[in-house]
Computed example of a mutant assay.
Amino acid sequence: MGDFGCTDITIQKMFQREGGSGKTWMDVCHGDFKLQMHPGEKLDVMQAAFLGNIDRLLQWDRISGTEVLSSSERVKKVSLWRWCGNVLVDSATKAFFGDAIYRVEPTIVPDFFPFDDEAWKLPYRYPEFAAKQLYEGKRKGEKAFTRYLSLPREQRQDASWIVKKIERGMADMGITEPTQCGAMLFTLHRLVNSNAYRLCFWTLSYLLFDETLLSTITEEIRPAFNAVDDTLDMNYLLDHCPRLASLYEEILRTVNDPIGARVVAQEATVGGKTLRPGARLLMPYKQLHYDPDVFGPNAAGFDPERFLRNKNLLKSTSWRPFGGAATLCPGRFLARREVYMFVALVLFRFDIKLAPGPKGETPKFPVLDDSIPSGGVLGPVPGDDVILEVRLSGRM
């Protein structure tokens, strides 16, 4: 919270227990996130808005932003990295904060990406000369959400339930300064946007570089589409597409770098090291995901049917793509729906194929940038994009 602009007084109020033993505001906030993001009425409302935005942006005439490298009447050459980012971040921003955030900061979406690229540096206290776009993005984000909260509430009625709940909760604690509630909303904006577009990028990358896998997944999801009214049945994708689910889990296993943070409660010895009470631990869960004793002798490679063959992997204590215990990510349900929606609509509405290189060379699969301790889904090394040729699908 301090990294994102909250003062010591604000943080103290957030974590102060009522009566010395009750729940803190942050405890209540965690519960509110589960109400918003776990399956139920509030997720249904959020999902309808969020997925509706993805649907709206994945139309032929809406492929027109910075993702388009060149265009003709029938073919658009598109950056997959930018396409995934522009659609997913725009969709989430509108679903959570409504139209008002665009009125106070029209560049809220493009401003997000330079900040997100360097946001991992924030908890490591990088000096500004070594993280210029991080701090510039941070200042822009803080100002945007401060101005957002300065608007009359009636102009922000299309915001999500969780955004309104955070604002009311902070006001109840006596935290009414827009910069402080704005810091919380700025944090929320980054949390809901940082991972899903990266997952979409890797999912489509693996599909495009494996024609057999692409054909298999396309056939499996085909019944989810209604060609008459151009709609998608999300429940079918969630309940009747086991190969899509296995692919999704395997991508999470290989491109995600989740880190768990814990405080030692009592003295313990692990690997010959004595851990003292009060010490803070960072646990890199990704190491668990490459354990051959759990995930098989081919754990170092990519196997899209790994979770199809062995469904017990999802119950393994070595499976931690979204953290664990009290800090298990509440956004995991919405993230899956985002990725499914984006990938399925792209495969259904468009004919896509890899574009040859500038000199006609065969495209190469992007390299995962595992040099960054991000704590989330990793991107490709800088410049390792996937360039597509996109046409309207003959199925339309």
Score class of each variant (00 low, 15 high):
residue 355 A to H: 13
residue 173 M to Q: 14
residue 322 F to N: 02
residue 90 D to W: 15
residue 383 G to Y: 01
residue 314 L to P: 08
residue 31 G to E: 03
residue 86 N to Q: 06
residue 319 W to D: 03
residue 76 K to L: 08
residue 203 T to V: 11
residue 198 R to M: 11
residue 46 M to D: 08
residue 231 T to R: 01
residue 34 K to Q: 06
residue 353 K to E: 00
residue 321 P to D: 03
residue 220 E to W: 06
residue 89 V to F: 06
residue 168 R to Q: 14
residue 345 L to H: 02
residue 260 G to R: 02
residue 336 R to N: 03
residue 206 Y to Q: 14
residue 124 Y to M: 07
residue 177 E to M: 12
residue 157 Q to C: 10
residue 210 D to K: 12
residue 197 Y to H: 07
residue 198 R to E: 06
residue 280 R to P: 07
residue 51 L to D: 03
residue 135 Y to C: 00
residue 354 L to G: 14
residue 19 G to E: 00
residue 383 G to E: 06
residue 327 T to C: 11
residue 315 K to E: 05
residue 144 A to D: 07
residue 242 P to G: 14
residue 210 D to R: 04
residue 293 D to C: 09
residue 249 E to S: 12
residue 129 F to N: 14
residue 256 N to C: 02
residue 103 R to P: 14
residue 357 G to M: 13
residue 80 L to V: 06
residue 18 E to C: 07
residue 153 R to M: 06
residue 42 K to Q: 03
residue 208 L to R: 05
residue 81 W to Y: 13
residue 235 N to I: 02
residue 378 L to K: 09
residue 369 D to P: 01
residue 228 V to L: 10
residue 37 M to R: 07
residue 126 Y to R: 10
residue 306 R to P: 07
residue 143 K to L: 14
residue 270 V to K: 05
residue 72 S to C: 01
residue 348 F to V: 04
residue 380 P to D: 08
residue 254 T to F: 04
residue 30 H to E: 01
residue 17 R to D: 12
residue 277 P to Q: 10
residue 38 H to D: 07
residue 200 C to M: 05
residue 78 V to W: 09
residue 204 L to G: 08
residue 107 T to W: 10
residue 87 V to I: 04
residue 311 K to H: 15
residue 73 E to C: 12
residue 271 G to R: 07
residue 354 L to D: 09
residue 272 G to H: 00
residue 158 D to G: 13
residue 161 W to H: 13
residue 109 V to H: 02
residue 146 T to Q: 09
residue 80 L to H: 12
residue 162 I to W: 03
residue 115 F to K: 04
residue 325 A to N: 05
residue 279 A to N: 15
residue 24 T to H: 08
residue 263 V to H: 13
residue 175 I to T: 12
residue 337 R to N: 12
residue 140 K to R: 08
residue 157 Q to D: 11
residue 31 G to A: 01
residue 183 A to Q: 00
residue 267 E to R: 14
residue 361 E to S: 09
residue 326 A to W: 12
residue 232 L to G: 04
residue 372 I to L: 11
residue 258 P to G: 11
residue 125 R to A: 03
residue 87 V to L: 07
residue 257 D to P: 06
residue 189 H to G: 08
residue 100 A to E: 05
residue 290 Y to A: 03
residue 318 S to T: 09
residue 162 I to Q: 08
residue 205 S to P: 12
residue 182 G to S: 13
residue 29 C to R: 11
residue 101 I to S: 07
residue 283 M to W: 04
residue 286 K to G: 12
residue 202 W to T: 05
residue 57 L to P: 00
residue 190 R to S: 10
residue 269 T to P: 00
residue 144 A to Q: 02
residue 170 M to A: 07
residue 267 E to M: 13
